[in-house]
Each structure stands twice: as structure tokens, then as C-alpha cells.
């Protein structure tokens, strides 16, 4: 059986759920596909302090659940399926094939987000969940009184490194450059924390151990000197890669793999919109992802008005 929707949204992160709120509230039959965690990246964020309207901050998971409730309140359907392909049919509708079914939609909004960039060194994959982690708030508590390393020099690396000092005996932040990219406020907090030390101009070349991680191999990029550092945990925060594989061949991507859209989140394919971290030039913030989702849903509504006419009247 093929299910028909007005709007299909790929990814139930902040951008996708916001788009779902707008589309379902506009009385369009709306489906949201999610292959992993509702909320996307915020679902594993400890506290959100910069989302307007929450002066005391709010837990990331709680905020994600609120987005979900709000979308479902207006009738959006959430399906825990992974979208495998998107195709534009000759009649202008879209066909989406998922791990569980075959769907048709008049408009599609892709809000597939981004995922953690991998280091790509030996041991990284082998020790995933065995000491290699991309989420301090998820896994930090298993490193109580142990020595851990954090790889990266941006906001995420410092933020998560500071969080890890709640548990770890020491946190060594390893950065391949001589200077951090992180914001001044986070740098100040990290430098003031006596459990944190820094290794600059240094890269991890391998992650080693037995059952679990025991040490990392390092190389100083300036001197070429190699060394070994004992560590029970390796937390990797070296940026994001957009989940744009579904869009390859369908819309134009920039050199970083982000989808090119106009100011209304419209791609080069009529009826196909892209919003949030997967689009180019995104601010990559919670609030801008929400803004993107709303913009895309409003543009999609305009597209549907032109092609399907207004939504049916209530009742």
C-alpha cells in the first residue's frame, strides 16, 4: 500500500519538527520520518541555554519532546523509518522509499541534519562504545576518576571537555592547530579549569587497547615527534558532515556537501525544500534550524496552494 501525504519531512530534528508544526497546523497531511532519535542533535545535549523563551535553560531531550508534542498536536505523523531514496515523478509528486514502505508526497522538506565527523584513524570504529565517543553527556559518567582525551578545538570540544571534568580525573584537549577556534567565554572557562590541559599542534594517529580503549598515539605536526598517551576515553568533536546523501544527484551541493537553497529553502527542484544543518550557509544553531523549518514549511505551503489549491476546510 502506498500512503499519500501533502508534505513529507525527512528528519525529526529541530528544523523538521518545526516544519511539521507549521505544515500540520496549515491542515496539510504531514508525515515526519526519523531513523534515530527524535530531536536529532539536541536529544543528546545536556542543557540548552540559548533558545529564547527559556531564561533558566532547558534539557535538550525535554525540548525535543516538546517540539514533538506540538507537531503531533496538529496532526503530524511521526514514522520511525529511514528514508532510502527520494525521486521526483513525472506528475510532479515525490516518491519516498523507506525501510518500511513506499510513500507519495506533493512536497518534500529534507531536514536530515548532520552527523559527527569521524577522525578516520585505526581503532576509532573498533572501539566505538568501548571508549570512543561522540557524546560526553551520554557516556561521560563511565569515566569517573579516569583520564580521557578530547579531540578538537571548537565550541563543542571545549563545552564537552568542561562537562567531562565532572567525572574524569583529567581531560586532555588535543587540537591540531596552535590556536583554538572556540568562543572566548568557553576558552576562559576551560583555561580556568585545573582538570583540563591542552596539547596544541597535535593529532591522534591511532586509538589502541584491549577490550576497551587504553591509550592514544599522537604526533606533533610541527616537530613530527610521536608519543603515546594513556587514556580510557576518546571524545571526538571535530565538526559535522551534512546528511545529504539522499540529495546527491537530485539538487546541487556545495563543496562541503551542503544543499544549495534560496532564501525560502527552495532547491533547484520545484517542491523540494531543504532546511537546517543540511543546507549551505546555515548558522547551525537550534533557533536558526527552527527558523529554517518554518521558512521551508511556509514556502512549501505556497507551492501546495499553487499546485493543489487550499487545504480542505475543517470539519
Amino acid at each position: 500500500m502506498t500512503l499519500e501525504y501533502d508534505v513529507a519531512i525527512v528528519g525529526a530534528g529541530v528544523a523538521g519538527l518545526t516544519a511539521a508544526i507549521y505544515s500540520s497546523r496549515a491542515r496539510r497531511r504531514t508525515v515526519v520520518f526519523e531513523r534515530e532519535l527524535v530531536g536529532g542533535q539536541i536529544a543528546t545535549t545536556d542543557r540548552v541555554e540559548n533558545y529564547p523563551g527559556f531564561p533558566e535553560g532547558i534539557g535538550g531531550l525535554e525540548l525535543a519532546q516538546r517540539f514533538q508534542q506540538q507537531a503531533e498536536r496538529f496532526g503530524a505523523e511521526l514514522r520511525y523509518e529511514s528514508v532510502e531514496s527520494i525521486e521526483r515523478l513525472p506528475d510532479g509528486r515525490f516518491r519516498l522509499v523507506t525501510t518500511a514502505g513506499d510513500y507519495r508526497a506533493a512536497a518534500v522538506i529534507v531536514t536530515a541534519g548532520a552527523q559527527h565527523r569521524k577522525l578516520g584513524v585505526p581503532g576509532e570504529q573498533e572501539f566505538a562504545g568501548k571508549g570512543v565517543s561522540y557524546c560526553a553527556t551520554c557516556d561521560g559518567a563511565f569515566f569517573r576518576d579516569q583520564d580521557v582525551v578530547v579531540v578538537g578545538g571548537g565550541d563543542a570540544a571545549l563545552d564537552e571537555g568542561i562537562f567531562l571534568t565532572r567525572f574524569a580525573r583529567s581531560v586532555t584537549i588535543i587540537h591540531r592547530r596552535a590556536q583554538l577556534r572556540a568562543s572566548a567565554v568557553l576558552q576562559q572557562r576551560a583555561f580556568a579549569n585545573e582538570r583540563i590541559r591542552f596539547l596544541f599542534d597535535t593529532v591522534v594517529t591511532a586509538i589502541e587497547g584491549g577490550e576497551v580503549v587504553e591509550r592514544v598515539r599522537l604526533r606533533n605536526v610541527r616537530t613530527g615527534e610521536e608519543s603515546v598517551l594513556p587514556a580510557a576515553g576518546v571524545f571526538i568533536f571535530i565538526g559535522q558532515v551534512p546528511n545529504s546523501h539522499l540529495l546527491a544527484g537530485l539538487v546541487e551541493l556545495d563543496e562541503g556537501g551542503h544543499a544549495k537553497v534560496d532564501l525560502e529553502m527552495q532547491t533547484s527542484v520545484p517542491g523540494l525544500f531543504v532546511a537546517g544543518d543540511v543546507r549551505w550557509k546555515a548558522a547551525r544553531q537550534l533557533v536558526s534550524a527552527a527558523g529554517d523549518g518554518a521558512t521551508a514549511a511556509i514556502a512549501a505551503e505556497r507551492y501546495l496552494q499553487e499546485h493543489l489549491g487550499p487545504p480542505p476546510l475543517e470539519g
Binding site: G129, S133, C138, D139, F142, F143, G233
Partner: peptide, 11 residues
């Protein structure tokens, strides 16, 4: 969890 080398949850 220590016995089974759990370093991440849910496992």
C-alpha cells in the same frame, strides 16, 4: 557494566 566493558549507554 565494568565487567562487560560498557562505556556507552544505552547498551
Amino acid at each position: 557494566p565494568a565487567k562487560y566493558g560498557i562505556r556507552s549507554i544505552p547498551s
